[in-house]
Design a binder for these strands. Structure first.
Lengths: 359, 359
DNA sequence: GCAGGAATGACGTACGTCAATCAAAGAGCC
DNA sequence: GGCTCTTTGATTGACGTACGTCATTCCTGC
């Protein structure tokens, strides 16, 4: 049988009340007595029954996900994973609230963050670019005792508790190795596309990409990044012109997650399947592109894993409990057509309640 | 506030007892009444508080992992993941017992399996080759109400509830694409090594490998598999002879998980780093081989994920609950030096208790 | 309309923990 | 020794669910 608090009390020769005080480090216990209790705990190998504890405590974890209101495929995938996970974690007394902020408005974001403590939120997963305003908002949240994790995009110079996502520089390096090795012939050029080079991810990926390209594939010339800002027309023109100007272009590296515009553009230019095309994030479009051969590889992170990891970490932080780093490490996945995971129907479809969804 | 069973009772206009009967589908409720209760559940959005339920039920999940007693790196990694997971899932009222069986003795295995029900085990994760004896043992376990999942190696013609692992044919296809694309020049040959071609994994991987090779890389000749049976000397001789006989060998595909013998052998032959070397399973040796450049890619599955998934599935099956397929899908991961996950120190080191470890 | 079985209700206890109370015992100080 | 102030003990009622017993009500067929 698993030992309980009563066993500790008996073993340590103290009362249940004292054990409780020690367990929840409440004041009113002499250091020596506390040590005796700890010793008893160690001796009989007691582990707190979190379920019973949470039941008694009437605890529920109210966690907020704060995301930009951009309507990209990636965000949509993330939201899908979030609703799935939210449904499952009902069993874990977890209650997820979603907040969206105007992508280009750090002050609006700060306002949303500032309002979270009053909404009873005890932990926040935040996907946002790092700005001074955001830095301050995070500090203020932390001071109020909320746990904060950075999601997908790290916020290294803030007081966030944890980062859930991949090392984008390593992701860029990975992309470079694949590009370099997939290009069979000798000298060639590679085009680099990006939604916006203001995003930390894009910069880091590019950095990693260039590192490897210079060191391991000196015969391959890498063109400067083009920022498309989500504008298909701009992309189409540029890709067409560049391909015409440099006939030796053998590959395209797409730093961002928007792959649809690129593949349709290559299609219209009649160049689909002729170039090595590598991009990021396994969105539905990327998936079809891999299946059709329009893309050769996608570097991605498992979004479901990202969301679940964020939830676990936030719960652990809220309890000041430990986290299992090996489980929380998000892997940089390489996906080609052959190891494409089967696409599953969306989850049980529990929407986050409307009341919570609106702002 | 989250709705409780009492709310259901009030809402449906029945007593608590009836609600309970419906929830745990016990007999003694008219179909019409049961439907009314279900309707009330739907209406108020009740979700059972699994924690409280398990607490009340005094339930704990006693799950067994049954593995061969081979001392390979892969098994060792698996065991590591298992002890880590076992430690964590103490909080989930889960209690893992480990059983090892002599690798070549199906009858011993059957004996071990047969003894599980009496040990109070409610679910079994089994890694073993499929034999008639095992098939019967599994059927008998299922009849006694135990849940059975196949681990790593599938048992498709048995009555197992679920398979936790990867599609090895797809893994072989993936290996083929990488081999083919990494070999820069035109025509070449590829050597294939295997511990034993009797294992289902090896056969399936080879199958997938050949499929892709024939279809997409007709210029590459694939040699027949050599079975090394874990004997380094044999491997060394064969690799040396084959390399001498076919000077156009450009790559080696290692079907099994033992990579150490291969890399040391290439080292001694002075051919390390000159061939495209691709293998399976991210063991510590494979990791060093990737880091040193002795291997080019490893196709692997996340062992931690495999173990946790098996635990989740077994718990769910034991409760006749649903499982979240998207979370339980094990991905075929491609690992190269650039996306090698950081190696973490082993977990908190809770050994499975000795009493349980010894058969 | 009545027996007989099936369906339902009422109630109590338990699970392991938390949190609060009040009382009692001990320590430290003058 | 008498006084605070701190530490400890004993007890109790939740939390949401399971599950048993026993009593009662509802159908169904005759």
């Amino acid at each position: 049988m698993r030992p309980t608090v009563n066993d500790i009390a008996r073993e340590a020769g103290v009362s249940l009340a004292t054990v409780d005080r020690v367990l929840n480090d409440r004041p009113g216990v002499r250091a020596k007595t506390a040590e005796a209790v700890q010793e008893a705990i160690r001796r009989i190998g007691y582990v707190r029954d979190v379920a019973a504890a949470n039941l008694a405590r009437q605890r529920d974890y109210r966690l907020a996900f704060v995301l930009p209101d951009t309507d990209s495929q990636f965000i949509r995938t993330l939201l899908g994973a979030l609703t799935d996970a939210g449904h499952l974690s009902a069993a874990l007394r977890t209650d997820v609230v979603l907040r969206r902020f105007p992508a280009e408005d750090p002050h609006a974001l700060a306002g949303i963050l500032a309002a979270l403590p009053e909404a009873g939120v005890v932990g926040v997963a935040l996907m946002a670019p790092e700005t001074p305003v955001v830095r301050d908002a995070i500090r203020s949240l932390r001071q109020k005792g909320l746990a904060v994790v950075a999601l997908v995009s790290d916020l290294p110079n803030t007081e966030r508790d944890h980062f859930v996502g991949i090392d984008n520089r390593a992701a860029g390096r990975t992309a470079a190795v694949l590009t370099g090795r997939f290009l069979r012939a000798g000298p060639a050029r590679v085009m680099v596309l990006s939604d916006s080079m203001l995003l930390r991810e894009s910069i880091e990926r590019r950095l990693g990409f260039d590192e490897v390209m210079q060191a391991r594939f000196p015969g391959i010339g890498v063109l400067p990044s083009l920022e498309t800002h989500g504008q298909g027309a701009l992309l189409h023109d540029f890709v067409g012109q560049t391909l015409a100007r440099y006939p030796d272009i053998g590959g395209i590296y797409s730093l961002g997650s928007g792959q649809r515009a690129l593949t349709t553009c290559l299609d219209r230019l009649g160049r689909a399947g002729q170039l090595v095309v590598i991009g990021h994030e396994l969105t539905p479009h990327a998936r079809t592109a891999l299946e059709s051969g329009a893309m050769d590889a996608v570097i991605t992170q498992n979004v479901g894993h990202v969301v679940r990891s964020a939830l676990r970490v936030l719960r652990a932080k809220a309890d000041r409990g430990p986290i299992d780093l090996s489980q929380e490490q998000i892997r940089i996945e390489i996906v080609i057509r052959e190891n494409l995971p089967a696409s599953l129907p969306p989850g049980p479809g529990t929407r986050l309640s409307a009341a919570r969804e609106e702002n």
